[in-house]
Amino acid sequence: MGGQLGFMYRQLTFKPKPIPSSTRLDNKVAIITGANAGLGLETSREFISHGLAHLIIAVRDESKGEAARAELLRNVSNDSCRIEVWKVDQADLNGIVAFSERVETLPRLDIVILNAGVKYLNYEKSPSNHEMNVQVNHIGTSLVSLLLIPKLQASARKINAPARLTLVGSEGQFWCSFKEHSAPNVIERLDEQAAFPPAMERYYTTKLMTQLWTAELASRVTSDEVVITTVNPGLCASSLHRHDSSGALNFFLKIFAWTSEQGGHCLAHAATHGTSYVHGAYFSEQKKTEPCSFSTSSQGIKAQKKLWNETIDLLKKECPRASLTQFDKP
């Protein structure tokens, strides 16, 4: 894993498959962020076809979410699935708290897929003055994951079966230097405009951060309540690339990219495959595999804990209404 040539070979030779027809999601409730288009929408479609009872499309733009809902209602065979659109903007921390409070009103929650993400190639700041890739892909995603854990745990205890939390990562974790991990404060360094790198380096860095965050989160949550995984959906022709319209990318996508439907198969597989033995696992090409060597090295584990502590401190400072006491232990 990790080499560019190997990546291109796998993109050409491996074709993701739907989850088995025997996988049933009857009576289950799922939340998929960024599900108005692309991989999230296709995962929604696949889940509904397997008997999902209640789907929440969690999106920043509710009008786009409603359009996705209408499409799903037109094209799926499971007429009994309740589909709702809920607003959540990962650049708005207080909005994330409001979203989580609404989640608490659900009778149960079985599956969460944190798919929403961005790929900015130029420096841009969020309203809270964080670099936008870092804000959405790390800070916002981290807060959503923390705030939905209690509901997933409560649901697992209620039905005596573990719930699932899957965060969407990327093979790009293998391709970034992440030199910022040695800075006095990682997030502060990443927020500096002078530290913004060319091309896709920053996007890849935030996906390595997703891997580190998920590993630490999984170490703090027991697998008998919530099975936590990350998934590489592969290179897909999806709306993720909306800020990159270069001819070179379009040519590369035409040759190597999977469809959004195939990427959705990868997300659906990671969120339903196996039980506790995949807790903390990284999935790629629809199988459990090893993440990048940095993430499992002593240096990477040190960076993982440093990133965790920084992120918790930041969230407590910038979003004091969020209840994070469950994660205070060292």
Rank of each mutant, 00 (worst) to 15 (best):
P330I: 12
K287R: 15
I57P: 00
H130Q: 10
N94P: 00
L148T: 10
A195H: 07
N122D: 09
S298Q: 11
Q11A: 10
P107S: 04
L39C: 02
T205W: 01
A270C: 13
L52K: 02
D313K: 14
E188F: 07
M200I: 12
M209L: 10
L55R: 15
N115W: 12
F327Y: 13
K17F: 03
S219K: 15
L55Y: 15
M8R: 10
S128N: 13
K125N: 09
N122V: 06
S219I: 11
L152H: 01
A218Q: 09
S155M: 01
Q135F: 02
K87W: 04
P16H: 03
G247H: 06
N94Y: 00
G3F: 11
G2H: 03
K306E: 03
C292A: 06
N94D: 12
E318I: 06
H273A: 11
R45G: 02
G2L: 04
I56M: 08
R108M: 05
L267Q: 04
T105V: 09
L143K: 05
P197G: 03
Q153F: 02
A53E: 14
D61K: 09
N160D: 06
H269F: 15
F178L: 10
I301T: 15
N250E: 12
S297I: 13
S77M: 07
C319I: 10
Y203C: 06
A183C: 08
A163P: 01
F294I: 06
K288T: 14
R102P: 02
F252Q: 04
S298F: 06
T275M: 02
S22L: 10
A30S: 04
E261M: 08
E201Y: 02
G274N: 09
A30C: 06
R108G: 05
L267I: 04
S80H: 07
I96D: 11
W86D: 06
S21M: 04
K254W: 11
L109W: 04
G140C: 05
V29C: 05
S170Y: 12
P320F: 06
F178V: 12
A237T: 09
K254M: 05
V144T: 05
S223N: 08
A199E: 13
H54A: 02
P291Q: 07
H279R: 02
L212H: 07
S323I: 05
R220G: 01
Q326R: 07
P320G: 08
H269S: 14
P150V: 01
G247M: 07
